[in-house]
Design a protein around this nucleic acid. Sequence first.
DNA 1: TCTGGGGTCCTAGGACCC
DNA 2: TCTGGGGTCCTAGGACCC
Length: 429
Amino acid sequence: MKKVFALVDCNNFYASCERLFRPELNGKPVVVLSNNDGCIVARSNEAKALGIPMGAPLFKFKDLIARHKAHVFSSNYALYGDLSHRVMDVLRQMEPEVEVYSIDEAFISLPVTKVWDRVKYAAEMRERVRKHVGIPVSIGIATTKTLAKIANRVAKKHAQFKGVFDLVDTSQIDQVLEKIEVNDVWGIGRRSTEKLNSRGILTALDLKRADSTWIRKQLTVVGARTVMELNGISCISLENAPACPKSIMTSRSFGHPVTDIEDLREAVITFVSIAAAKLRKQAVEAAALNLFISTGPFDEQSQYSNNQTMTLHQPTSSTPELISAALLGLKSLYRPGYRYRKAGVMLTGIVQQGYSRQLDLFSSAQQEVKEDKELMTALDRINSKWGRSTIQYGMTTAEEKPWLMQQTRKSPAYTTNWQELPMVKATAL
DNA sequence: TCTGGGGTCCTAGGACCC
DNA sequence: TCTGGGGTCCTAGGACCC
């Protein structure tokens, strides 16, 4: 049966999450910051209207924010992740084929029906999410993912469509594409836009009609695919089941510059522990670990950045094993005298847990692996119940931890921590 | 003073092999 | 004097996405 794509996208997701528990902020400007309270990564419509751009560093807009009394939040991923799951659950209750594309977006495969039925159904979907979770979403429908993205944009931008726009009808596609700038097309970023503009390709419609040989040469097969999708030929399919990840990364900028190797050591141990827990959560193991440390990109005094890959004995998800590999790397990467601002660990060579485990000749393998697994299971259980840092490896009790993130305006974990549940005040009548 | 984090895919070029 | 060619694998870097 022929199917069409619906793209469900949460409106100003992080800002909407924050407002859900602070309804008095509805209609007011709200911004949410990146880690370390560095950049603005989400804005309510009111904040967008003030001219605050996406990704802008906070310090450049402090005045504007103060002047308009915009509300500022540190990012609270425990909250956003939980609300995201709830939204996706509602979608799955209505349709079986859901691809969770990002924390705030999902592609859904819908059967082809009459336009009117489709729009009505999507509107119902939208209303259910609003009612059951409280997050507003927009829905775009089309024959390819790239066109569904564009339809979603229209749904979000023009209030008269009430959050749902259907672009399956081919006769109106060109009219819509004509009004979309080429850099707003999914897959066309800054560099491609420069190339396209210099050739006079300014709108999505221009791109749709562009010469395919030239596109293939300048934008590779990726760009060629985008052009096909604009022409209604579906090249990017729905990925229903989550695939095995190719890499898993944990990295952070530090709250303050770090010079001491002992502080770096703690940071690295922490990041490896988080990454290892991610492995176990997805039931996979890593065959290699890449560690990197670097000074800040805005440090004018001196720059240093380096990385090293350690190959593990065999694929593993054991925190202590990964930590010892990482610390070996740190020893050879560290140079004294620099102000480090960031470190991170990337796990690669990911395989399914226990898949093709070679018997290790150099240790009494089986028994050790088993004990380690049980230990990790216990650790994960405790940390998921009592919080990520309840049991940690190799931490000092130092009060000053310069590498820790700055997060001065974080909202409570309303939905994932018993200690931080929202309270309802009962007033006597 | 203050500038995020976590991914994917593609290509070019080098090493190596036969 | 004349000094192949094709395939594979790996890595680094670019571009893009949210």
